[in-house]
Design a protein around this nucleic acid. Structure first.
Lengths: 227, 227
DNA sequence: CGGGGGCTTGAGGCCACTCAACGATAGTGG
DNA sequence: CCACTATCGTTGAGTGGCCTCAAGCCCCCG
């Protein structure tokens, strides 16, 4: 699981690589930094996709809304992740900063022009899209067929795999975000976490309910049925 | 909605195009036909992805299983659709023939080799992957946040858009397949269809419950909340 | 005609949702 | 320093939508 847009802070050579222009391409690639306050919208669904983003620090949620307000978060993006990459002209998600966030951004058009001449860049685009697809496919199984406890367990495992400090999670997002990612309500998420706490599988660090220690990752993994 | 792997019977120039080899590529592309009986497995999840498939006639479901048998169908593939395309080495779904099905298949390796030298083929790969991604993203919203009636309405609209005969649906799949696609049970699907029938929105042709006339597509669309 | 698969429909149950109360924390202003 | 407020999270009680289990119908096919 967990392939998402994340390929780690290593980044993508040839895409978000500042040295790239010196390697032979005649194009200058913009690598501006930009910051967003907690809760700020980075781009909206159906807006033209002019830029591609990479998170320097912070965290981002990307989601779709139904007209009556129901929300489905498709992915969380953490430090190092690239998001906002579209092959069509428009964004298919709204992206919001979960906490104060700094992103590097480049013009999509520059990327396209490079990709037209550079097969490695083109392959990286395909690779990123494929990773997003794999994540979406796994998430469909979760949303369509898993119980609430399985979903929360899968979420924790996913976050743990992305975390640098294995076994310790510092979640940037609130319970409602987790719920909208897992297709649940925030109360159900809270109850599932409480159950995992009661089972001794996880513990909270201090009084901060967003800092979690995974005490028994094997038992946690056994709660999320694999396929 | 409904982008899936379907780009219509027109197919993909440069990928499933028999004339392609004559256009300059030194590679011979296999375009063998192969037939599968109703219910036969075409490939299994995690098997090496040696071939890419295009449906000549018939229909295919691709799905993931949990270890206890819960199933999530990720997509239905109809005539003209390409499926089984993987960027990694292995398949991420199991594919089964829903009815007797004939496919054209080509070696994945041939495709890869062509894509390495041909930017148009590479772009087509990206385009197909993107279409699959768009479908998966929309389906996440359906699975995570829509009610049973909305899901069934969305399914009928999706099938109608793919159908050649607008307003008339000849569904190849059974209720259980629909349910596993929509994250419901077959009984819930059946009840939703009965409700739509009682509302005068659809009618069955004769005694065949898989042949459906959409009597009021606008009302049907209004039941599936857009975003 | 019997058997089996597919579909519908009903009755009842359960899991997640809804609604609500409450505690904890952080920020604000007097 | 202490209200006051707002936000976030937990927990309980009750509801409801979908699931489970079951019966029965229809059609196809032997």
């Amino acid at each position: 699981m967990f392939a998402c847009t994340s390929l780690g802070p290593a980044g993508f050579p040839g895409i978000f690589d500042a040295e790239y222009p010196e390697k032979g391409s005649a194009l200058r690639i913009n690598l501006n930094e930009f910051s967003y306050r907690k809760g700020a919208e980075i781009f909206g669904e159906k807006e033209p996709a002019d830029y591609v983003y990479q998170i320097a620090t912070g965290a981002v949620r990307s989601y779709k809304l139904l007209s009556d307000g129901r929300r489905q978060i498709g992915a969380f993006h953490l430090a190092g992740d690239i998001f906002g990459l579209e092959i069509g002209t428009d964004h298919r998600f709204t992206a919001e900063a979960i906490v104060d966030t700094t992103v590097r951004l480049m013009k999509r058009r520059s990327l396209e022009l490079v990709a037209q001449n550079d097969l490695m860049v083109a392959r990286n685009l395909l690779s990123m899209t494929t990773n997003n697809l794999r994540h979406a496919e796994d998430h469909m199984l979760l949303l369509g067929r898993k119980t609430s406890l399985e979903r929360v367990a899968a979420f924790l495992i996913e976050m743990d795999k992305r975390s640098t400090a294995a076994g310790i999670l510092a979640l940037p997002m609130c319970r409602r975000d987790i719920a909208d990612y897992l297709g649940l309500t925030l109360e159900t998420v809270s109850r599932a976490l409480s159950r995992l706490h009661a089972l001794g599988i996880l513990a909270f660090i201090g009084n901060n309910q967003r800092q979690i220690v995974l005490r028994d990752r094997d038992k946690l993994a056994s709660l999320d049925l694999q396929y």
